[in-house]
Every structure is written in structure tokens, then in C-alpha cells.
Design a protein around this nucleic acid. Structure first.
Lengths: 176, 176
DNA sequence: CGTCTTGATTTGACTGATTCAAGACAGCGG
DNA sequence: CCGCTGTCTTGAATCAGTCAAATCAAGACG
């Protein structure tokens, strides 16, 4: 069978090449990988792959809507294949781990700004900052377990059970 | 009178220096300036000011909570003095202009993620992407008027009149 | 008012992420 | 199977931001 990725590539008018299939494969495994992680991972399938090739592939995938680029402040860009459905991200301040979240409200009232200053808004992007389960254990609130090492132990349960709001510690004023 | 900035600096335990007063002054004029703009602007008050000094000053201001750093994807970091009140930002895809917005809802329901994957969330950050009034005129929807030239014609009416939601073109699925 | 301590700034080199450019190469339509 | 065109390779460059050592000055003290 023709690795389902091939179909997707052709569907958007992109040629099916080894580098592209390798990158897609890595992204399927690690939902929020940075460029460097992708290069490393993709080399297992295509050893001669260069970083620039990966950047090129990613740019093409993003341009065609097969991938999405997210750029948490202070960290290198991450890429994910989950597109189309709008979802947001949880980012760990300590280790940089990223998890997906679906918005709790169907039609989000607060995502329509109160005044737009004449802007025509076409997208709202939300990033939740906090600490992942691992980093809550040691350091509790600061000391990074392994700062900026977001390669392996990434969390990404796309659909998680409903927790209670009372569990979260929402900093006063941080959320309007 | 001692330029009110001096008080603020001392209040958080920072020494009052010429570079710091210059940076604060520039920030007061241009609410969303990038590091480079600040260097240029601050040099009018203190010609010998070096970029590194500005980075140092900004880091100190942010650390002490006198300034806030925002990093829109794909653009250099911007700094603003409006802190404490939580507000979000409108960013123009074309020219990079930034405007402040207050959240439309007091306690934002959709800013509490539906599932947190065990994360302890302490802040929600929202960025609205779109096109500013200037860039809507020419190009309409793409062609940048003057890509990445966000120095002078920045928009920032902190408190704007209430517009109607129907004015905005919310892309299907973009807002969950 | 002068001295001293310590924090702030200067200077200059450096890193890390990403992009640009030119030529070699390979999908895939014919 | 051939060739056109888009893609990849290789190598160099850019850009924002950081680091470290040496100099300088704010403000406490006497």
C-alpha cells in the first residue's frame, strides 16, 4: 500500500519524495517536534537528509495545509500534523513539553475581542502556560527538571478526560 | 520633578540610570516596540547607548514586572509597559502592527482548557491574527503594504469603542 | 563632600534558529 | 524511456539574542 502520506501529498499537488515521507513519518510519531528533532528522526529513514531539506519540506507542508507551525515564545518552532480542527496548546514553562487542548466552549465568546481597532480578525491563537506533571514533581513551580529538552518525553493525549476547574491554579489577573 | 520613572525604578529596587530612563521613555511613546526600535529611539536621549545595554535594561524591567515581553510568531520580541491588567493582542499579518485588546468576557470560560493532561496552568495568552486598517486597503488579504516595518505607524488605542461582531470575518474553524 | 561597593553598561565575540542561492538530482507526465 | 520542472544538496549568510570580561557610575557611608 502506498503509505497514505503519498496520497495526501499528491492531493495537494506536491511530489512524493523520500524526504517528505520521512518528515511526515516523524511528525506522526512525535506530534510536537522541533526542526532539529525532525532532522534527527528523519535521518533514521533517510540518512543523507540535510537540515535545509527539512526546512524546505516543512515550509511546503505548512503552505499546503498538511502541517501547522506553532511558535511558543522563547522556544524554537514546533510542527504538528493535526490541522483543520482548531485546537490550542498547553506549554510547560520548565521542560517545554506541549499538549493539545480543545477549547472548552463551542463558540468562544471571549475570543472575539471587545474592540478591534479596525482590524479584520481571522484567527485566534491561544497558549496556556504552566507546568507539566513531570516538572510539578521536582522543583515545584520553578527549578527545571531538564530545561529545554523537549524531545522525547512529550505529552500529547489528544483527547483527555474532563478535569475539574478547581484543580487548576489560575493566577489572579493572568486570565481576563 | 523626578521623572516618575525614577520612582518606579527605585520602587522595585533598580538603580536609576540614563539608559533605563531612555528606554522607559521610548516605551511610553511606542507601546509595542521591538528591541531595535527601542535602541534607535533611546539614542535620541542617550546617543552612546548600545544594543546590549538595551537588552540588559529590558531584561531587568521584565524581571521586575515593569515591562512585559510579547513574542508574536515570526517576529522579533516586542515590549510594552502596560502590565498587571491582563490584556491580549491583535497582530497584523501584513505589517506586524500590534494593538491591545481587553478580553470581552470578565471570567473567560473558554480560557480554561477542557482537559489539562495534568498540567498546572497559570496563564493564558491570546493572539488575534488579522489585518490592520492600513493593510486592508492595498492588497486586501495578502500583499503586504510594507512587510515587517512595524516601527512608526503602530496602532495602539488602549481603549477602543465597542464594534459589532458582525464586522469581523471569523474564519470557519479557526476559533474553537 | 570624597570614597567605596556593587550593580550597570560597554565592548566585542559568539550561539542557535532559520533562510538564501546555485547547481545536482529525481518525480512523474507524456 | 525522456525531459521538464520542482526538489534536494551543499555551503554560506542573516538575524535576534546571549555571554563574558573590563570599565563605569549610582548611591550608601563616613
Amino acid at each position: 500500500m502506498e503509505t497514505r502520506w503519498a496520497h495526501q501529498l499528491r492531493a495537494v499537488g506536491l511530489r512524493v519524495t523520500r524526504p517528505r515521507l520521512s518528515v511526515l513519518s516523524v511528525l506522526a510519531d512525535r506530534p510536537h517536534a522541533d526542526a532539529d528533532t525532525i532532522v534527527t528522526g528523519a535521518r533514521e529513514l533517510h540518512p543523507s537528509l540535510s537540515p535545509q531539506a527539512v526546512y524546505g519540506v516543512l515550509k511546503a507542508l505548512v503552505a499546503q495545509g498538511l502541517a501547522r507551525r506553532i511558535e511558543p515564545a522563547g522556544a524554537p518552532a514546533l510542527f504538528e500534523l493535526r490541522v483543520g480542527d482548531n485546537h490550542h496548546h498547553l506549554v510547560c514553562r520548565s521542560c517545554g513539553a506541549v499538549a493539545d487542548v480543545d477549547c472548552a466552549v463551542g463558540a468562544a465568546p471571549c475570543l472575539v475581542p471587545s474592540g478591534t481597532a479596525g482590524f479584520v480578525v481571522d484567527e485566534a491563537e491561544v497558549v496556556f502556560w504552566g507546568f507539566c506533571p513531570d516538572c510539578q514533581l521536582d522543583g515545584q513551580g520553578r527549578a527545571p527538571a531538564e530545561p529545554r529538552q523537549m524531545s522525547e518525553h512529550q505529552i500529547s493525549e489528544h483527547q483527555m478526560s474532563e478535569h475539574h476547574i478547581s484543580e487548576h491554579q489560575i493566577r489572579g489577573g493572568a486570565i481576563a
